[in-house]
C-alpha cells in the first residue's frame, strides 16, 4: 500500500475532466504506483492545496468505487470568492502533479440496518453518494436517489448515475423545469427507511424539517454539508495556553489554519465543524464565540467553554485556549 509522508498520502493527478461549467473531476493514483488505503462509501480526504504561498486544506468526498483502491476520485466545484483552495485546484493543478492528502475518514457512512436507503442531493453534493451507491449496489441493498441540479449544463454527473442505476435515479432541474419536492419524496415510506441528504444548507434544512413533519426520528436522517461553512470574518487573536504563543487570525483564515501557519499543531479531521476531533477548551474569554459548527450542543454553545477551531471564530478582546 502507498506509503504516507508525515501521515499524508502522495497522490499523482492522473486525469482532470471538466464535468460541468464549475466542477472538475480529479482522478488520483498513488505517486509510487501502489494501492491506496481502502475506504467506505461516504468517506472524504483532506487535500493539501498550494495556493498563494499558503496551503489550503480542503475536504473532498471520494466518489470513486470503494472496491477499487488503485485510484481515488474527487469533484471540485470552483468557488471564486471562497478561500481560493478550489480556485487553485482549477487553475494551478495539472495532470501529472503530485498533491498531498490525508487518509480517508468517513463521517457520512450508510446505515447497516436500513431496509431502504433514500438519497437526496443537490449539485456537487452528489459526490459522496457516488461511492455510497456503488457500495449498496454491490451489496444488493435497496436504494434510490433524488438529485436536483440547476440546469441541463450541470446535469452530467446525474446522467452518469442514471446510466448506471436507471429507474432508481430521479433527476430534477436538468430539463430546466422539474423541481424536487422533499415532502413528496419522503411521504409514505415504509419503516426502516433511512434518508441521506448532501447539498446546500437550505436543502439539508428542508429535508430535515420535512422528515420531522412526517414523524421521522433523527436516527433515520443523515446529512453532510458540503458548503464551506466559511470561517471568514473579523480578525481576532488567540493565545495558546501551553506555549503562550499569541496568534493573529486574519479575516481570510480559520483559527485552525492560523495556528497551523504559526507552526503549531491542533488535532483535526473533517475541518468542517462536523466530527468533533478539534474540540478545544476555552480557558479565558473576554467577548463572545461565534460558533459555526454542527458538533457542540446548545448548552455547550451557551457556556462558551469549548470551541471548534476549524470553523468557529470569536469577537473578543481576549481568548485563551487549552492548546
Amino acid at each position: 500500500m502507498s506509503e504516507s509522508q508525515h501521515g499524508a498520502l502522495r497522490l499523482r493527478v492522473k486525469r482532470i475532466e471538466a464535468v460541468t461549467p464549475e466542477i472538475n473531476r480529479y482522478t488520483f493514483g498513488a505517486a509510487d504506483g501502489s494501492w491506496l488505503p481502502p475506504f467506505s462509501g461516504g468517506s472524504h480526504i483532506t487535500v493539501l492545496i498550494p495556493a498563494d504561498g499558503d496551503t489550503r486544506r480542503n475536504a473532498y468526498s471520494l466518489m470513486s468505487s470503494p472496491y477499487d483502491t488503485s485510484e481515488y476520485q474527487i469533484a471540485v466545484r470552483r468557488v471564486d470568492d471562497g478561500k481560493r483552495g478550489s480556485l487553485a485546484m482549477h487553475t494551478n493543478v495539472r495532470e501529472g502533479d503530485i498533491l498531498l492528502a490525508g487518509i480517508p475518514a468517513n463521517l457520512f457512512p450508510v446505515s447497516k440496518h436500513a431496509r431502504h436507503h433514500l438519497f437526496i442531493a443537490g449539485g456537487v453534493g452528489i459526490t459522496p453518494v457516488f461511492a455510497q451507491l456503488e457500495e449498496l449496489s454491490l451489496k444488493g441493498s435497496s436504494f434510490e436517489l433524488h438529485l436536483a441540479v440547476r440546469g441541463p449544463e450541470h446535469a452530467a454527473l446525474g446522467h452518469e448515475l442514471k446510466e448506471r442505476y436507471g429507474e432508481r435515479v430521479t433527476l430534477y432541474g436538468h430539463d430546466g423545469e422539474s423541481r424536487l419536492n422533499t415532502m413528496d419524496v419522503l411521504a409514505g415510506r415504509p419503516l426502516g427507511t433511512h434518508a441521506y441528504v448532501c447539498g446546500p444548507t437550505r436543502m439539508i434544512d428542508d429535508v430535515v424539517n420535512s422528515a420531522h413533519a412526517l414523524g421521522w426520528s433523527d436516527s433515520n436522517i443523515h446529512f453532510e454539508r458540503f458548503e464551506d461553512l466559511g470561517s471568514t470574518g473579523d480578525p481576532f487573536s488567540v493565545t495558546l495556553a501551553r506555549s503562550g504563543a499569541v496568534i493573529e487570525v486574519s479575516p481570510e483564515q480559520s483559527l485552525l489554519e492560523a495556528v497551523e501557519e504559526a507552526g503549531h499543531k491542533l488535532p483535526y479531521l473533517c475541518r468542517g465543524g462536523a466530527c468533533g476531533e478539534c474540540e478545544t477548551e476555552v480557558l479565558e474569554l473576554d467577548g463572545t464565540i461565534d460558533h459555526r459548527d454542527d458538533w457542540l450542543s446548545e448548552s455547550d454553545r451557551a457556556t462558551c467553554k469549548l470551541i471548534m477551531p476549524c470553523v468557529s471564530r470569536a469577537t473578543c478582546t481576549k481568548l485563551v485556549i487549552n492548546a
Partner: peptide, 10 residues
C-alpha cells in the same frame, strides 16, 4: 420491531 428496522428512538 428490529426486523423492520425500527430504531431505539422510535
Amino acid at each position: 420491531a428490529t426486523s423492520y428496522g425500527m430504531n431505539r428512538d422510535e
